[in-house]
Simulated assay, not measured.
Amino acid sequence: MSAQTGGQSGRPRDPAIRAKVLLAAQRVYARSGIAGFTFEAIAREASVGKPAIYRRWASPSDLMDDVLGSHELVPAESERGNIRDELTEIALRTLRLVLSEQGSFILRVSAERGTQPGLFDQYYERLRQHIHFQNRALVVAAIDRGELSQSCDPDVLIQSVTGAVLVSALMVFAADPETNAEEARRYCGRLVDQLIQGVLPET
């Protein structure tokens, strides 16, 4: 369902209020899950009146749909160069995402995915299409260039990099890129070096 279907026509919508509410909704959900995802809690978090929310969204499910659709899932362009640099950049982007507010939201969605399968499955499909398959294309190109072995499985390699970063972030093995960018990049580089050893072409 498209967002902003609730309420009646009248004065123009203030885009700043919509942005505040979407951010507040993301924070409330990451903190409290579906059970705490109420207009009252979101209005309190956003410091806006409930009528401002009711004018824009007909129900909490409509608001959640808008939050999911508002996420910018296409990552920034990776560094162009050799595959090690590209995979290191992918690892860094993944680490930043996991440690961000959006990352907390995604982890909560993952935990509660079974409770809202239609809505959340669509979100994860967007994650796969916009992030995984774009990153996968970089690996395929590296195989074509001869940087990686023909036996390399692009899906498994990308999943290995992003999955290892996720575990590293959750276990606090990796430095936060926002506070220690140099150490975070070094860690991601070491992780990538370890993972690609088995798929480098024979010399």
Rank of each mutant, 00 (worst) to 15 (best):
M1P: 02
A3W: 00
T5A: 08
G6Q: 09
Q8F: 08
G10C: 11
R11T: 13
A16S: 14
A16I: 08
R18G: 02
A19T: 10
L23A: 15
L23H: 14
A25Y: 05
A25W: 01
V28T: 13
Y29L: 14
R31F: 00
G33S: 06
G33I: 07
I34W: 11
E40M: 06
E40Q: 15
A41E: 08
R44G: 04
E45C: 04
E45P: 02
S47I: 03
P51C: 05
R55K: 13
W57Q: 03
S59T: 13
P60K: 08
P60S: 12
S61T: 10
S61Q: 14
D62H: 07
D62R: 04
M64A: 12
G69P: 03
V74H: 11
P75D: 12
E77R: 15
S78Y: 10
E79D: 12
E79G: 10
N82Q: 11
D85C: 10
L87P: 06
L87K: 13
E89G: 13
L92P: 05
T94Y: 01
G103R: 10
G103K: 08
S104C: 06
L107S: 08
L107C: 04
L107Y: 03
A111G: 05
A111C: 03
E112T: 07
E112V: 09
R113N: 07
G114I: 01
Q116E: 14
Q122H: 03
Y124D: 06
R128K: 10
H130Y: 14
N135V: 00
R136T: 08
R136I: 08
L138Q: 10
V139N: 04
V140Q: 15
I143T: 03
R145K: 15
G146I: 10
L148T: 05
P154D: 10
D155N: 13
V156K: 14
A174D: 09
A175E: 14
D176V: 12
P177L: 09
N180Q: 15
A184D: 08
G189T: 08
G189D: 05
R190D: 08
R190Q: 11
V192K: 02
V192F: 00
D193W: 02
L195H: 02
L200M: 14
E202W: 02
